[in-house]
Design a binder for these strands. Sequence first.
DNA 1: CCTCTGTGTTGCGTATGTTGCAACGACTGT
DNA 2: ACAGTCGTTGCAACATACGCAACACAGAGG
Lengths: 252, 252
Amino acid sequence: MSQSLDRALTLLNSIAQDARTLDDLAEEIGVHKSTVLRLLRTLEQHHFVRREGARHYRLGSAMFDLANQALDSFDVRRSAHPALAALNARTGHTVHLASYEDGEVVYIDKFEGRHSVRMYSRIGKRAPLHCTAVGKVLVAAMPAARREEIARSIEYPVRTPNTITTPADYLAELERVAQLGYAVDNAEHEDFIHCIAAPVRGTGGEVLAAASMSVPKVLLDYDGLLALVPELRAATTEASVHSGWTENGKGH
Amino acid sequence: MSQSLDRALTLLNSIAQDARTLDDLAEEIGVHKSTVLRLLRTLEQHHFVRREGARHYRLGSAMFDLANQALDSFDVRRSAHPALAALNARTGHTVHLASYEDGEVVYIDKFEGRHSVRMYSRIGKRAPLHCTAVGKVLVAAMPAARREEIARSIEYPVRTPNTITTPADYLAELERVAQLGYAVDNAEHEDFIHCIAAPVRGTGGEVLAAASMSVPKVLLDYDGLLALVPELRAATTEASVHSGWTENGKGH
DNA sequence: CCTCTGTGTTGCGTATGTTGCAACGACTGT
DNA sequence: ACAGTCGTTGCAACATACGCAACACAGAGG
């Protein structure tokens, strides 16, 4: 809708991936380099980008500043933090906190596991709904109509041999998740990792976010993973309580 | 330079602070609400803001995503992380990592202290050069000409009775810092807190960032603070080594 | 030393995109 | 049912951001 803004935001993405030169950026978004220059200058005034040396641009501090303000505005994040940190410290596995946004999952907190298996995730990163344990938990918590709507509307890119690829399978899986109260990602997203996830609830029992534990398959087999469920749920329950949830808050 | 972009970035700031309705935002930046709406829509497409319910806007996930990508591009941050985390764990005091940007100091990492004295700082936040220990360290590391230029150009807002208020005093202080190899903020920034800071160096001995420890005065008097300098310097040395620095890398 | 190539930067006229307006529609509370 | 909010849309006028082309500046290479 707003051309120059649109271009500027695209620029930010390019810059974030790796500092570039003016002409590169110009070509990348298909405009004249003088245009890029002027956009960058405006971004620079607001500290959204900074110049490094003569011909390199990097993201600036306004980015960090706003981002952290925004993270703080996710109340769940703060209230769930201690319980998840403890879970991470106790088990040594990677712990994620994620939230639903616009047909995808967004990681809003992450605790790095001790086993140095680098996972390709990051706070702020988005992931698909159909092949992540957190995604299943979040969608399973929605009313049936909404679930079907989502199951119909999302894509089902195949990530591994185990990835769910049809709306019908997904809906069945969601039903299972809703019943059990937790979800499993049996190497459906990344080949060597499997995860379990459970919901974090708020005052009215509504699901605010999902917390997950990710474990390399070499470290723990499927049964070993499932054995961790009680520990995960203890943590999410604690997180829920800190978020205002009460066991008998909703009746059933 | 670019009007709509300028307005959009201002909008982001307002939203971050927790501005609410469309008209509020419109008034705040002095444009018609339809204009705000269109800008917000563009921002929304790029996930920079998200709608919450009908009439609430919050910062979106692109913010976190880009910010974390950018933070990762600060190599110092990653390489200094373990040493600073250890320092924080060992002493229990608040530890900051900061970098110079454009006449100010920018916090690029923070480790919360155990003593729950809330400090008004945050990753991404900027602070003045003249009344922070990290600021002194960073400026002291620059060549004399640059130092004087900066000393002349910055403002000297008075924050506490101890704040340095003249370029001459500041230059003298910088000289002292350069000699000692560390800096002190003797309650010059916030009344009840004093800090010490030391440089983190890179491959060529150049100063990449400054690390500081902040301690409430009620917890430790001035001499007690200075007694922590060796511990801080041990940590910054370790961080420097992880950043590629070698003791004899530069000769003198 | 000089050119040559690759940068970033500026001035300018024009077309384009953006703006403000005013009317409409959705929603809430009384 | 009505008034009062607030978000949303179409349109015409204007300002603005655009592309162009020329300039400035650096480093590389002969």
